[in-house]
Amino acid sequence: MDTKQLETILALFEKSTVSEMELESETFKLKLKRNTEIHEVPVKPTIAQAPQPTTVVDTAHWVKAPLVGTYYHSANPDAKPYVEVGQSVKEGQVICLIEAMKVMNEIKADRSGVVQEIKAINGKMVEYNQALVRIGDAP
């Protein structure tokens, strides 16, 4: 299963209304689920040691809330948000605030890259470990 085949299957799945799809062959198993990451579960080949398929590892990575608090995308209500989708960020750059017990905690990007998605909602509570901002590779 090379990346080209993977893309065609992906395109098919995108267009279809199927919410979940599983595809299995001897060397690998592909599980697609609507609006979540694509799970590619490499199955250990039983017979000969077939070469492991080189998969496109998505290095996108979610910055998660390190504490419980209120998520703010900007320093204060009138300021511009720290980051927006598509914007590139450097490791250590402040990407949002979480207020907890009246203390404003700056949350920093723990890797460089491009902001691909912002899931947390401004002014709303976030729980520990909740996914906030997804940072992927530059296109």
């Binding site: 419980v68 608090g69 017990m101």
Partner: peptide, 10 residues
């Protein structure tokens, strides 16, 4: 802190 924040925010 997290417990009190959770209580206040909910």
């Amino acid at each position: 802190n997290n417990i009190l924040s959770a209580a206040l925010l909910t």
